[in-house]
Design a protein around this nucleic acid. Sequence first.
RNA 1: GUCCCCAUCGUCUAGCCUGGUCAGGACACCAGAUUUUCAUUCUGGCAGCACCGGUUCAAAUCCGGUUGGGGACGCCA
Length: 433
Amino acid sequence: MIRTRFAPSPTGFLHIGGVRTALFSFLYARRQQGEFLLRIEDTDRERSKPEFEKDILNALQWLGLRWDHDVLYQSRRLGHYLELARDLVGRGLAYEEVNEGRTAVKFRMPKTEIVFQDAVREEVRFDTALFDDLVIIKSDGFPTFMFACAVDDHDMEITHVIRGEDHLSNTPRQILLFQAFGWKPPQYAHLPLILGSDGTPLSKRHGAVALTAYREESFLPEALLNYLALLGWSGESNQELYRLEELVKKFSLKRITKSGARFDREKLEWVNMQHIKNLAEPDYLAKMTAALENESKQFDPEVWKRLVLLYRPRIKTFKDLLNQANYCFNEIGPYDREQINRFFTDERLKSCLEKWAENAKGLPSFGDIAQLEAMTRNVADDQKVEAKILIHPLRFALTGLTASPGLFDLMSVLGKEVCLKRVGQFLESAPAK
RNA sequence: GUCCCCAUCGUCUAGCCUGGUCAGGACACCAGAUUUUCAUUCUGGCAGCACCGGUUCAAAUCCGGUUGGGGACGCCA
């Protein structure tokens, strides 16, 4: 059976690169009906922190990358590593070295050539004569990454190690360790690195690198996974939008790219927008409401639903609604002077708006969109102006913006009271004659 | 510095293995259509095989080199 693993060290929050590594390992295991295991590499006593471990586990769960079996913690297997290290020492393949009174165990580097088939890069070869002896047990009694990783990949019966290209030159050393124990090394697949938008290694200065940042921004987990899958992998068709189950069906190691890929937030946003549009309506409503829990409470459920549906084709993320429809959640500030003056250069506008307000007051409510439209168009007709002469200033009066969803839908969301108030304020802001 | 990996539109990529199809798709951008505006949607457009040499009737594709980018050289992982 195929077995893959994701083996993060809890020395930082789960980042974008880690998510993709986990994703590819998950996809391959699921595709082959194998198992995807999780191992926490907490052998750095100084830097490992429980909150990071918690973050990683939470993040994987949120993403829907479920692992099989129990999580393996390296810090709980210290005795085992020590035992294996002693075995190597006993066979003369490793030795103890005392440095400033502290004893570490080092692996004697065999001088040979290591050739292995990487699933992504094909044949890779290293001359190990260029490598130094390797510390396998640190003087604090903890194993090094190199040692614990090899031992656990064997013990967990991992068949495919899928990890970042930054581990490529660790691989020959780990293969040597496998050989020292007479174990069969797993297959390796080294993924290209994810770079920042400028092509340099991804770091904080490129913006958000922690997964939680995207979660907080209300990106959909499936969209994130979809986008990340596209960074270094492509299917056989031109399809670019995938649900997780589809990725599982179509994933293959052979179609992984060799070169580093730049993270492009704009495309991520586009993918997220597509996923939002593909959500079933009740699902969309539920997720949107959960993402904007506090804001949604300020609205009548029916009105909230109308608002949220209005913005469905326009938002890049759920929380994007807050930016785009700010006028629904907050008072609008003073109107832009220049814009106001432009609208009121048309002499007829003032009387039109006054007439509109008068008619609007007569309406029992703003619940009927068709009625609002008819009423507004009638006012324009009566005043002998084109409808847009009235519509554009009304939009601006109600939103403070020159672009928005349909004006009449919007009126019904804001409600009679708010609309009349804002139109009143707008009229008061009109330049004096 | 030493070793390893990589190189197609601005970006993500297909094509390369098994040379010969106008180098295909997507994001972004531009234009048009639709719309009360914007967004969505639809249509069209711009734009690329890093460079040099070799093999061949023929090279994005095979080989070598150059340049460029990345990674690794920790008692970090």
